[in-house]
Design a protein around this nucleic acid. Structure first.
Length: 396
DNA sequence: TGGGGTTAT
DNA sequence: ATAACCC
């Protein structure tokens, strides 16, 4: 793999500088080995919760993948385009005033020489993203993904082992540095609510009444963000493992007929089936998501989901059987469940999601797994499985 | 304003 | 099923 750049700033994740001092203390006490906390995560012995977590954040990730694919793009101002947006751009482009999530119009205005590549197909980005995660997993299996371009790696165990091998002279030469968070965190909605309370900075949040904050935001969010405001984050690094869902979406100005929708849904599903086939696991639930046109409320979506019939699941890996037809059929029933096709409609997004992924277990007869695996057991409970109420029933 | 993903309610 | 969060 060619090299991918990592952002120069941010490098230490959740725990910050305190760690270094504690690690050194324990080094001099000559303690050995690690234990595991309630989450099963490695912590150094001695009861402290000091950890070593590396945060790897890839720089303008999509743009880098494009420059690796086509080296002629290197050195030119490059933007990655999805629909009307430049979703990311390389540093040449940033120097010339292009910003992330700028419209193509604004970007071209700022920077007429800007080279644009289409980045609506995430396949190569996704593949490269998992290559990076897999590389990091060689250092420690405890790698948590955040989006396609960020990984948190819990290196506590590795660092402890290395430290035990060092001579005392070498230890004192160890220098560790940390990073203090900037003044910004929290999501859009919460930001608005905090603003209403007069909280604009981290310091504001640190000194704000816990009780009032809990009443405003709920105890969970309140306690979480107030601890974060002091740089405290005890949340474990949760290994992401393989994805829990596969989805493909397409946005557009207008979709107002059933055939139009069906064509788009077929495209989305075809790509998904390729992906799920490569993954090897089988999805047991399918979901259709739509966004209706509305001048104001742009982020609201509606969805319907249902179980995938077991006979369809079985045919999934095997390329021969036509699995498209029954699945498109199901999706169109979900579609008509949300959209009254006898009335005019205007959609701006369609998305198909395959989730509830299950590994094909090599369950042996007579074991618990055997009877819990829908496709294997032929006993009375297998034929009619009780669906969750949330799943909308579609007749076969 | 894109095309993904996750967890909580 | 939706809402909120992350990128």
């Amino acid at each position: 793999m060619e090299k991918l750049g990592v952002e120069p700033e941010e490098e230490a994740g959740r725990d910050e500088e305190e760690d270094a001092a504690k690690a050194m203390d324990r080094a001099e006490a000559g303690e050995a080995g690690c234990s595991r906390d309630v989450h099963g995560q490695v912590v150094p012995e001695g009861g402290s919760s000091s950890r070593v977590i590396v945060h790897v954040d890839l720089d303008c990730f999509y743009a880098q993948v494009e420059m690796i694919s086509n080296p002629e793009l290197k050195g030119k101002p490059l933007g990655v385009q999805q629909k009307y947006l430049v979703v990311t751009c390389n540093y040449e482009a940033r120097k010339l005033g292009v910003k992330k999530l700028m419209t193509v119009r604004d970007a071209k205005e700022k920077c007429p020489q800007l080279v644009l590549v289409n980045g609506e197909d995430l396949t190569r980005y996704r593949e490269m993203s998992y290559k990076v995660t897999e590389l990091l997993e060689e250092f420690s299996p405890v790698v948590e993904r955040l989006g396609f371009d960020e990984n948190f790696v819990d290196l506590t165990e590795m660092v402890e082992k290395r430290r035990q091998q060092l001579q005392s002279g070498e230890l004192s030469a160890l220098t560790v540095w940390g990073h203090v968070y900037n003044d910004q965190c929290i999501g859009y909605k919460t930001t608005k609510r905090l603003e209403a309370l007069g909280i604009r900075s981290v310091h504001d949040l640190q000194t704000f009444s816990s009780k009032i904050l809990e009443k405003e935001l709920g105890i969970s969010v309140a306690q979480r963000i107030q601890k974060l405001s002091f740089g405290e984050d005890n949340s474990p690094v949760t290994p992401s493992g393989p994805p829990q869902s596969f989805s493909e979406e397409d946005s557009f100005k207008k979709c107002s007929s059933e055939v139009e929708a069906k064509n788009k849904i077929e495209e989305l599903l075809a790509s998904l089936l390729n992906r799920v086939c490569q993954d090897g696991r089988k999805p047991h639930t399918i979901r259709l998501i739509i966004r209706r046109y509305s001048p104001e409320n742009h982020c609201s979506r509606e969805s319907r989901q249902c179980p995938i019939p077991s006979h369809v699941i079985q045919k999934l890996g095997t390329g021969n059987y036509d699995v498209m037809t029954p699945m498109v059929d199901i999706l169109m029933k979900l579609f008509r469940n949300m959209v009254n096709v006898k009335m005019p409609f205007h959609l701006t997004l369609l998305s198909v999601c395959l989730c509830n992924l299950k590994a094909l277990t090599t369950a042996k007869k007579g074991t618990i797994d055997y009877y819990l695996t829908p496709s294997l057991s032929t006993t009375s409970h297998s034929g009619k499985r009780s669906f969750k109420m949330k799943d909308t029933h579609v007749e076969d």
